[in-house]
């Protein structure tokens, strides 16, 4: 006998206001306003969502259109292809941003992949952090492995982890000529890791065991334990072995 489903699905195609509640699959193709918290298996937004409460989406949350959520968001897979403003803390296993996402709380996950643009007020914590887009993190980015490919001007207050890798992207003439988004650079306060590889990075302090400061870098102070290698094109004001 098939197990009876306890919860219903919710589909909004036109314009509607709902108070939230508990559902299996929630699909929003039109414009929806949710005035309270929503607990569901999956949430898909293709239109516009404005939500007041907490979102818990056990399996996944996908925003292809626009979404504003006032409360905390918790989901195993979070994907933003459109535009999202999340005003609370965001917790997900896998987080993928191809569009634009603004998070006013903290962001926690296992794997985070940023191909679009992301702004985070708080700290970011995960095991694997990869970015091929634009980053603006006002707190600490703490990850086992950090891989950042620079496209535009990005800034991160503090980066800490085991392996930190920031690289310049060779890009074609077109984008270069129109100077889209400013020249690729990363601005950071402190970068600390065991293996640190940096290019095009402007930082106050870099601390690490094995440090490579590549082309285009401007660092005020490098403190290293084992090795420090430096590209002739990089500027390091002072260095110290500790």
């Amino acid at each position: 006998m098939q197990e009876r489903r306890q919860r219903n699905d919710l589909t909004i195609s036109g314009m509607s206001t709902t108070s939230g509640g508990s559902y299996d699959y929630v699909t929003i193709d039109g414009m929806a306003k949710v005035t309270d918290s929503l607990d569901c298996l999956s949430l898909e937004v293709n239109g516009t969502l404005k939500m007041q409460g907490t979102l818990t989406a056990a399996e996944r949350m996908t925003i292809n259109g626009m979404g504003t959520i006032e409360g905390p968001v918790r989901s195993s897979r979070i994907r933003v292809d459109g535009m999202a403003t999340l005003r609370g803390d965001v917790t997900g296993n896998e987080v993928e941003v191809n569009g634009r996402c603004k998070i006013e709380g903290r962001l926690e996950g296992e794997r985070i992949q940023i191909d679009g643009s992301v702004t985070v007020r708080g700290n970011v914590e995960c095991e694997n952090f990869r970015a091929n887009g634009n980053l603006n993190i006002e707190g600490l980015l703490n990850a086992e492995a950090v891989d950042i490919q620079l496209y535009t001007l990005s800034s991160v207050q503090e980066i800490g982890g085991e392996r930190i890798d920031v690289r310049r992207t060779e890009r074609g003439g077109f984008w270069k000529n129109i100077g889209f988004g400013g020249s690729p650079r990363l601005k950071a306060g402190i970068i600390e890791g065991d293996d640190v590889f940096l290019e095009d990075t402007e930082a106050d302090t870099v601390r690490g065991a094995r440090v490579f400061i590549g082309r285009g870098c401007k660092i005020r102070l490098v403190e290293y334990r084992e090795t420090l290698d430096q590209d002739p094109e990089a500027k390091v004001a002072s260095r110290r072995q500790i």
Partner: peptide, 11 residues
């Protein structure tokens, strides 16, 4: 301990 360990434990 290393930076990696310290940050991992914090996480």
């Amino acid at each position: 301990i290393s930076y990696g360990q310290l940050y991992r434990w914090k996480r």
